[in-house]
Nucleic acid binder design. Structure first.
Lengths: 192, 192
DNA sequence: GTCTATAGGATGATAGAC
DNA sequence: GTCTATCATCCTATAGAC
């Protein structure tokens, strides 16, 4: 019989994200998800045609937002490094459960062909952040954004505002060209 | 019959590391490993008592070295931030296949109880690198070391020396306290 | 050291009743 | 929408022959 007053589809997504994040995608069976909801695997298949489709619905919103962010850069005047770094932090933070639990999962990256997408995204962002596509320069951007992400994973209990301020600050310094130490070196970057 | 002129045990380790890195630990079956070596699963079990033990033999050397590095800090005079960051880069680089392929695998981290180990390690290293255990300060260390790791993953084709120079440099800047821009702020850190 | 054969179990997915 | 029952497939691991 139908369960009362519930949006089963949404509940499945919620439980799936929880379990995928905790245990990994492959290590979580549809049986587990169904059991926690008090339904059967077959009912689950009524709502999602496959395990992979369920995964996609969890991850795609983040991917889409990342893509939209990259699109907005370059086109419009969205080129201020600090603004970009801050927005990237906010995006990672908003989707932190997906970020931590799913984007780091080997199988998820394979299944959704995420590696190429992310590399491509990074290339575009790096170019704007350090104004170069030479590896020696892009390294700075990778340290900045990669390090930024890690703070969200490693400090789940630090208040968001405090974390954001400290992390963005450190990331901005990582972005500075090698001749750093001279605050005026790149105007908007070095100033606060 | 025994295969000629081969060290099967070592070959298993090599092939396992390759496949685990490419596909993830759980996604790689012992059948696959055995097939690639031209032996059977049963032979594999002769050399390694379980899949988990095989995994442990691949990962433990790295864990041990990380631990040894943390032990050397504090005790002896091994406290120069740049030296620590450089050694951390070298360690990550030397074990990059394990680092990229296994430490990022959810199931591996679970199975080897790696999360607590890594968090503990980071706490000790952070304290030496930024001289504080306040989150606002530790963030700098996390950005520095986390970002450093990412460069190894994202730039597999950049010559090691070039990568190291650029990555360590960016990481060192991320470590600077918020009042950065004044090169003399922390002596050895800011100078090159 | 390596083999064949198999136990024992979990999994994703489907068919068809209600 | 949810169920029961089942399929086909894969897995880790073991027993015992050679």
């Amino acid at each position: 019989m139908p369960r009362l007053n519930t949006d089963t589809r949404a509940e499945i997504r919620t439980v799936a994200l929880e379990l995928f994040s905790e245990q990994g995608y492959e290590q979580t069976s549809l049986r587990e998800i169904a059991e926690r909801l008090g339904i059967t695997k077959a009912a689950l298949y009524y709502h999602f045609s496959s395990k992979s489709v369920l995964l996609g619905e969890l991850v795609h919103p983040l991917i889409d937002e990342l893509r939209a962010m990259a699109d907005r850069m370059g086109e419009s005047g969205f080129t201020d490094p600090r603004a970009i770094v801050e927005e990237y932090f906010d995006l990672c933070f908003r989707y932190r459960q997906v970020f931590i639990g799913l984007l780091n999962d080997v199988h998820v990256r394979r299944e959704l062909e995420l590696v190429e997408a992310m590399i491509h995204w990074r290339e575009r962002v790096d170019a704007v952040l350090v104004g170069s596509d030479a590896p020696a320069d892009r390294v700075r951007s990778v340290v900045a954004l990669g390090g930024l992400q890690d703070t969200i994973i490693l400090f789940p209990d630090v208040p968001a505002a405090e974390l954001r301020a400290a992390a963005v600050d450190a990331a901005m310094r990582a972005l500075l060209p090698e001749t750093a130490g001279t605050p005026a070196a790149k105007g908007a970057i070095a100033s606060e």
